[in-house]
């Protein structure tokens, strides 16, 4: 397990517990009391640290290398009853964008999401979760299929941005994202979007227009990453922490500004400390929301969805 800089105190206690256990094994000294005390200390330290996370720390957690990614969620939540579908039918299959049919409990659902890689090789294969236009077009193809069969769409968002490459521009990255936003705003079936990691700008919004937009507790969603914001507005990479604060990109701030519909709690310490627990929590949240949305008639669903986004923005 990797630990972030602000998690050092936790790591220290964990190391101490480890050592105590070792000592107990070697020397037959009864360390039960010490271990119990350490464990108590661990819990309170954990609580304290995670209660007061600042924006930048949330960003770090959202990118934690052990954090579960889209396919892990889908596999677990569908109990393996998942048929992955490939390709945009035009250019190729984008490995940074995955999708397909899955059974969520008794509900057939169209899952779509960006996929990051779990190791160096896979990260490259998945292009670090940065989709190309064909990824967005594949996503749209799948959404249209969901509409055709009248099944809900669930998108799991986790991207540092749409890929800013030469070929992406040639194939119309801007058009692909714009088209998705346009079509999602009027798709005739319920859409639930969940930010499970990073929600960077147009790359996230390209699969992010829904009846319910939810954020996991330790994720971020904004118009730009704190690093890029720092480099543009402060003209230096060193102000990422200030930028993270200024952008108000945490789930809490986003909800306060009425830009999302809800926050989903993560296990203490973040999704990566208890992936199984996280999958269970999300599955239940999704089922609850699908249940609600299925009751809304389609001709009311779309004006409601559009109306929600039309209200966003503050002017004088």
């Amino acid at each position: 397990m990797d630990y972030l800089d602000f998690e050092e105190p936790i790591k220290e206690i964990l190391d101490q517990i480890e050592k105590a256990k070792e000592l107990e094994g070697e020397s037959q000294v009864n360390m039960a009391k010490t271990i119990k005390e350490l464990e108590k200390k661990l819990e309170s330290t954990r609580k304290n640290i995670y209660k007061n996370l600042n924006a930048w720390q949330r960003v770090q957690l959202s990118r934690h290398p052990q954090r579960p990614y889209t396919l892990a969620y889908i596999e677990a939540m569908t109990d393996g009853q998942f048929i992955e579908l490939h390709g945009d039918r035009n250019v190729k299959d984008d490995k940074a964008m995955v999708g397909g049919w899955g059974m969520l409990g008794d509900e057939p659902v169209m899952f779509i999401g960006q996929q990051k890689g779990v190791n160096t090789k896979m990260r490259q294969y998945r292009n670090f979760g940065m989709a190309n236009p064909e990824g967005y077009r594949k996503a749209l193809r799948l959404m249209k299929m969901a509409e055709k069969f009248n099944r809900p769409v669930v998108t799991l968002i986790d991207t540092p941005g749409a890929f800013p490459g030469l070929e992406a521009e040639e194939r119309g990255q801007g058009e692909a994202i714009a088209r998705n936003i346009y079509e999602m705003s009027k798709l005739k079936t319920p859409i639930i979007c969940v930010i499970i990691g990073e929600g960077a700008s147009g790359g996230a919004l390209g699969i992010g227009v829904g009846d319910k937009v939810l954020m996991l507790e330790n994720t971020w969603y904004s118009v730009i990453s704190p690093e890029s914001c720092s480099s543009i507005l402060w003209r230096s990479w060193d102000y990422k922490e200030q930028a993270a604060e200024a952008l108000k990109l945490t789930a809490e701030d986003m909800l306060k500004n009425k830009l999302i519909d809800g926050i989903i709690k993560e296990p203490l310490g973040g999704a990566h400390t208890d992936p199984k627990g996280m999958f269970e929590i999300l599955k239940n949240e999704l089922l609850k929301n699908i249940e609600q949305l299925k009751k809304v008639e389609t001709d009311k669903l779309i004006p409601k969805r559009m109306g929600k986004f039309e209200k966003m923005g503050v002017t004088n």
């Binding site: 079509e183 705003s185 919004l205 904004s222 118009v223 039309e310």
Partner: peptide
Amino acid sequence: GARMMEAAFSLMQLAKTSAKLAQLGD
């Protein structure tokens, strides 16, 4: 592009304007 100083509010203008255009199209 989007105005950084209004952060996610700016981002959501993409959705707002596109939703309006969808109505115009329909």
